[in-house]
Computed example of a mutant assay.
Amino acid sequence: MDSEINELIKELSVDVIYVPRLDAEGKYIAAINTIVIDDRLSERDKRRVLLHELGHAAKHQNNYELYNCAYSLHSKMENEANEFMLDSLVQSYIRTVDLDGKYLNYMKFIEDNEIDTRYEFVVKELFTKYIYRTQIV
């Protein structure tokens, strides 16, 4: 997945900076197309935060000024960034698992990746989308 992330970083021309201390896990600064991540996070959390912030860069770079305009827009953008992160994690997981798709357990994926259960429906939909697509091809 690291090569996929690096390719996405390159495609979006975004800079990624790890800092020793940050008041959040990560931030996307659209004005300078830069992602800042707290270096104290575990490697798994850094990857998850980076994918979330890349979601902001991919989906919100040109309209990020809306982020602080209204709570509904802020929530929508955060949800879209989380869905981007989940999509990337699910695709990577399915590609790296040795098992036939029918044995994959999306709830175990949620638990193993410490994903908030409010995203259960999203993860289930992604599993269905990618498992069926890979079996049809």
Rank of each mutant, 00 (worst) to 15 (best):
L66G: 02
Q91H: 07
Q135V: 10
S13K: 13
R133D: 06
D39V: 05
L66M: 11
E83C: 02
Q61K: 14
E111W: 09
E114T: 13
S13N: 15
H60C: 01
H60K: 01
S92E: 11
S75E: 06
F121A: 12
R47I: 13
E114H: 15
Q91A: 01
N62E: 00
E125C: 10
E53W: 02
R44Y: 12
D38K: 00
S3L: 10
I9C: 09
E11Y: 08
T128I: 10
K124M: 11
Y67H: 09
F121I: 06
I94F: 03
E80S: 01
G55A: 04
L8D: 06
Q61T: 00
A30I: 06
Y103K: 06
D39W: 09
H52G: 02
T117S: 08
D15F: 15
I115D: 02
A31W: 02
D116E: 12
L12R: 08
L126M: 11
G101I: 14
L89F: 08
R48K: 15
T134D: 04
T128F: 02
H56I: 02
E111F: 13
S88E: 13
D112A: 11
A24F: 10
I9P: 03
Y64W: 05
S92N: 14
I9K: 14
N82R: 04
I131E: 04
V36M: 10
R48Q: 11
K59T: 00
N63L: 03
E11T: 14
Q135K: 11
D112E: 15
T117K: 12
E125A: 10
I17Y: 08
G26F: 02
K124N: 13
D98G: 09
L104I: 15
T34G: 01
G101C: 11
P20H: 15
E11M: 13
K59Q: 03
L22A: 06
L51Q: 03
F121S: 12
R48V: 03
E80L: 00
A70D: 11
L73A: 08
A81P: 02
N79W: 00
E25F: 10
K27L: 15
E78W: 01
D15I: 14
R40N: 14
R95Y: 07
Q91C: 07
E120A: 13
I35A: 07
T34A: 12
K108D: 15
R47D: 11
E120R: 09
E78M: 03
S92R: 07
R44N: 15
A24T: 15
R48G: 05
E78S: 05
N6D: 12
D98V: 11
D100M: 08
G55Y: 00
R21Q: 12
E125L: 09
A58D: 04
K46L: 10
E78A: 03
L99D: 00
D100Q: 05
L86W: 04
